[in-house]
């Protein structure tokens, strides 16, 4: 089951440029929340702050409070590695490990975190691939094929399976379908819909229709600030803020 996320006063910088301004946001457990906004509005930075991926970029830093379930992400005793283990992430471009087979790709997180039980690992790999709706397509070539030999859409589902295998509580998706064709995109969207039964999903997208299709809640970011956050339906029909309205009606961005 997923857990909720509570963000308070989150600021982020790239060098001297501030890219997020005091974000406060509560993300519902076991729901899909979409983050939309024009490019450069800080929506990617925002999700990368949730699992402390932001700070892996040189000169980038973040401050504030993020609580994922009981875990204090930026607390003094918190370890970024532990945080990322508990919060899965799917990236914009599919990034399977090219030197590993499909199986090893999915098992990578488990193995590298010191998980050894072979039988349970097989089960987890199968379960994750099934959850990612990839099992039927790859079950005959789990060990034979490299992760890089799959098609783009399959690769992205493989990356989702890889993220799910370590049983995260939250799944962050940073424009997961932006590099994919429409058919693959619809598969991923369908998948996201399934996943919310088990996980809290935060998805960044520049595609408003996609947000409308998959998310119950939508947050609109502009120039590093959270402008409006509400039920998706409300955002797209009767937004409270003028800027939100301008954006969703296509007046800028």
């Amino acid at each position: 089951m997923g857990v909720g996320i509570e963000v308070r006063g989150l600021n982020a910088w790239y060098g001297k440029n501030q890219s997020l301004n005091s974000i406060d946001m509560t993300v519902a457990a076991n729901h899909v929340t979409a983050v939309i906004g024009p490019s450069g509005c800080g929506k990617s930075t925002y999700v990368r702050c949730l699992n402390r991926m932001h700070e892996t970029i040189p000169e980038a830093r973040a401050e504030g409070s993020v609580k994922v379930g009981e875990m204090d992400v930026y607390g003094s005793g918190s370890d970024p590695v532990e945080v990322r283990r508990r919060i899965g992430m799917v990236f914009q471009k599919p990034n399977p490990f090219p030197s590993m087979s499909i199986y090893d790709n999915v098992a990578a997180g488990l193995k590298l975190n010191g998980f050894r039980n072979r039988k349970q690992m097989n089960e987890l790999v199968e379960r994750s691939l099934k959850l990612a709706a990839l099992w039927d397509e790859v079950k005959d070539s789990l060990h034979k094929k490299s992760g890089a030999s799959l098609s783009g859409g399959q690769q992205q589902r493989l990356c989702i399976a890889r993220a799910l295998a370590v049983e995260p509580e939250v799944l962050l998706m940073d424009e997961p379908a932006s590099a994919l064709d429409p058919i693959s995109t619809s598969k991923i969207e369908e998948l996201i819909f399934q996943l919310k039964q088990h996980y809290t999903v935060v998805i960044v997208t520049h595609n408003m229709q996609q947000a409308a299709r998959v998310a119950e809640f939508t947050a609109f970011f502009l120039m590093g600030s959270l402008i409006e956050y509400d039920k998706t339906e409300k955002i797209f029909t009767t937004p409270a803020d003028k800027r939100t309205e301008d954006y969703i009606t296509g007046r800028f961005g």
């Binding site: 991926m53 892996t56 590695v81 992430m89 990034n95 490990f97 997180g109 990356c159």
Partner: peptide, 14 residues
């Protein structure tokens, strides 16, 4: 590619 490293960090690998 850096995305490969990010994928690993994202899985919580040190």
């Amino acid at each position: 590619p850096n995305v490969i490293r990010e994928a690993a960090y994202g899985l919580g690998i040190p």
